[in-house]
Design a protein around this nucleic acid. Structure first.
Length: 275
DNA sequence: CTGGTCACCTGGAAGC
DNA sequence: TGCTTCCAGGTGACCA
């Protein structure tokens, strides 16, 4: 379900209900998602969620206990995960409701049909450990300069679409936003990253930022089945330029959108506008 | 290091 | 209607 904008929208939705609040109980109904969930209850019960942060597509729940001892819950929504807030008493959990974090007056529930999501505990800064330590810089962080982005991007010979999606040059760009950003920047997805001029790399960074910011402002509703933390319906508020539009006319030039497969994933692009 | 392939899961849509 | 096939927002292990 989620790429960076959906995770950021989720973070903003959850934060007011969890920040500064004590986790009274943790209910785990599934032995494992990507990682085993055993032990999470012991780590989380009684802790206070100090801050909810985001890194790429990961949420980082910074927690402390009564002794001001800090720890970190790192969660990922995989392909189909979502968090939802329920006031107490919450409805009975369904078959894909794997975890509840219970607070004094509400609970937040992780639902994930495909179970590609993840929850892991870290006793120290998760940014120093896999998987976060392999992530590239945050695309929306102003500290990332166009020059630095160009240098990093051009160090790779792989197709630029694959480099964007791998998350090592820049974090958080999944399949949809990688496609849309390349369309916006007029760059062919199969072009070797190393063969993109510095000027066009800079245009790509601007495109990535514009596309992500637009999606966040729209409430993450680029994904057809994205739901907010209160369950509000996902609807395509942002029409994709190319994603999922194979054979339909390019919004810029009218040429039919093409689909190719890169690294096992569908890539959509305009063969006329993207070079 | 690189690129390719596959595995992890379920459910929805499309095709017959 | 019902069965089969394909496809899906992500990651990471493994192999040449």
């Amino acid at each position: 379900m989620p790429e960076l904008p959906e995770v950021e929208v989720t973070r903003m939705g959850l934060a007011p209900s969890v920040e500064g609040r004590r986790i009274e109980d943790v209910r785990i109904r599934t032995p494992r998602l990507r990682s085993p969930l055993a032990g999470l209850r012991e780590h989380l019960c009684g802790r206070i969620v100090e801050r909810l942060e985001r890194r790429g597509k990961y949420l980082i729940w910074r927690c402390r206990d009564e002794c001001a001892c800090t720890g970190f819950l790192v969660t990922h929504l995989g392909m189909s995960g979502r968090w939802r807030i329920w006031p107490l008493p919450a409805p009975e959990p369904g078959p894909h409701d794997h975890v509840d974090l219970v607070f004094s007056d509400c609970l937040v529930r992780l639902t994930d049909a495909r179970r590609f999501g993840d929850m892991r505990w870290f006793d120290d800064d998760p940014g120093r450990h896999p998987p976060l330590n392999a992530l590239g810089p945050e695309p929306l962080d102003a500290a990332l300069t166009p020059g630095a982005f160009a240098r990093r991007l051009r160090a790779h010979r792989a197709p630029v679409k694959e480099v964007l999606m791998a998350g090592r040059v820049i974090a958080g760009c999944g399949n949809i936003y990688a496609c849309e950003s390349l369309f916006e920047a007029g760059i062919h997805p199969a072009r070797a990253a190393s063969r993109i001029s510095e000027a066009r790399c800079e245009r790509l960074l601007a495109a990535v930022r514009a596309v992500l910011e637009r999606a966040i402002a729209a409430g993450g509703s680029t994904l057809r089945d994205f739901h907010g933390v209160s369950g509000e319906n996902g609807y395509f508020a942002l029409e994709a330029g190319v994603y999922g539009r194979e054979g339909r006319p390019c919004p810029r030039c009218g040429a039919p959108i093409a689909r190719i497969v890169q690294a096992g994933r569908s890539t959509y692009y305009c063969p006329h506008c993207q070079r």
